[in-house]
């Protein structure tokens, strides 16, 4: 089944601000539970979405393409096999798949800080795809796919 055939269940828009993160998590968690994810899977997806949105909140202001860009739109799709969250934003494109995973032994040795959000996303999500804005589409799409066990 192609992605275009998967049913979109809902969408919601949130301000691109850190105080929206709790609402974003709860929105994703509840949608996940209602569409067949277990409590544990729904938690994992909501944490991954939190990490993606936290990165947007942190970087969007300096990367925003317009004053209207400070919103995050979430779209939820699912079928019996998968639960997909799309995160849409209008800031400068940033593909999380371009960031290498850290060597955690080195990370701890050097007492580093930050940069773990993408690593968490990768650990929790089955597939991550990124579609940057282009001439005929002024928003980026980060697609997080969780297979339904």
């Amino acid at each position: 089944m192609s992605f275009n055939e998967i049913k979109q269940h809902s969408k919601a828009r949130f301000k691109c601000e850190s105080n929206e993160l709790a609402s974003i998590r709860e929105y994703v968690r509840l949608k996940g539970l209602s569409l067949g994810l277990s409590e544990e899977e729904a938690f994992k997806v909501s944490l991954a979405v939190d990490e993606a949105c936290s990165n947007l909140v942190k970087h969007a202001k300096k990367r925003s393409l317009s004053e209207n860009g400070f919103y995050i739109c979430l779209k939820i799709y699912s079928d019996q096999n998968q639960f997909i969250v799309e995160i849409l934003d209008k800031s400068q494109p940033f593909n999380p798949n371009s960031v290498p995973s850290p060597d955690m032994q080195e990370y701890f040795k050097q007492f580093k800080r930050g940069g773990l959000g993408i690593h968490i996303m990768r650990s929790l999500i089955d597939d991550i795809a990124y579609f940057p804005a282009k001439i005929d589409k002024d928003y980026n799409v980060l697609q997080l796919k969780k297979l339904i066990a």
Binding site: L21, L47, E51, S54, F111, R113, G114, L116, G117, H119
Partner: peptide, 16 residues
Amino acid sequence: DYISSAGLGVFMAFIE
């Protein structure tokens, strides 16, 4: 009830 990487980062900031 909940922690994300931002919370983990706080401990990394001070441990050394």
